[in-house]
Design a protein around this nucleic acid. Sequence first.
DNA 1: TCGTCATATCGACGCTTGTCAATATGATGG
DNA 2: CCATCATATTGACAAGCGTCGATATGACGA
Lengths: 112, 112
Amino acid sequence: MSEPGLACCTPLSGTAMSAEQAEQVAPLLKALADPVRLRLVSLIASSASGEACVCDLNDAFELTQATISHHLKVLHSAGLLDRKKRGVWVYYAVRPAALRAVAGLFETAVPA
Amino acid sequence: MSEPGLACCTPLSGTAMSAEQAEQVAPLLKALADPVRLRLVSLIASSASGEACVCDLNDAFELTQATISHHLKVLHSAGLLDRKKRGVWVYYAVRPAALRAVAGLFETAVPA
DNA sequence: TCGTCATATCGACGCTTGTCAATATGATGG
DNA sequence: CCATCATATTGACAAGCGTCGATATGACGA
């Protein structure tokens, strides 16, 4: 692993993400890194009321109800979605703070 | 899967991400959804010259050279990193366009 | 030509993930 | 109470992932 002290190129400079930061943000990205979950978040975020009923989400995909439920759980456990039960139905809403945390990652990383 | 035509809640409205869009962006997020790869991109992006030599990246982690090489390959295959060989050394640089594609996702999704 | 160094590839290993069918939970209405 | 509906959970399966040690590739200097 190149022990000798002879620089082969420009040393890494600037302030890069810390290991702890990476460990914190990666789970959020992992939760979003699935086509179905991306669409779920998008559907919920773009709904008029800011929230969506699971029954509608189920109908938007050609997947089992169990699978959608699983994906929603993943997003909820990651802190990306809020869960609210009203009567028989369950509504999920996006947590803007969580999305902003991810967005912030790229705002600082990408040089416009 | 709730066939009857009785709406239980607000129908999903607005323009959400298409399935094709989701399938396109998800691989980018998947490539970034790992603490090591996140740090790799961050290290490269924050380097003074905008690129980083693999030898330096190896030294920044307590991982095998094979593992780092694998992660760099994943990022490169996803289109997030450019690869340039100079002499014995290999340099990776971030592709701003790819990062912007991901950033755009959240700019439109997150309501400021 | 040979040895060395930097990087990539291979093969293997355990762990995680996405999906499903089946079943459980829990609220509602008759 | 009981049947029904919406959602969650369980258990199983194949596929994918992160990591490693070992080895291959390919460039350089002596």
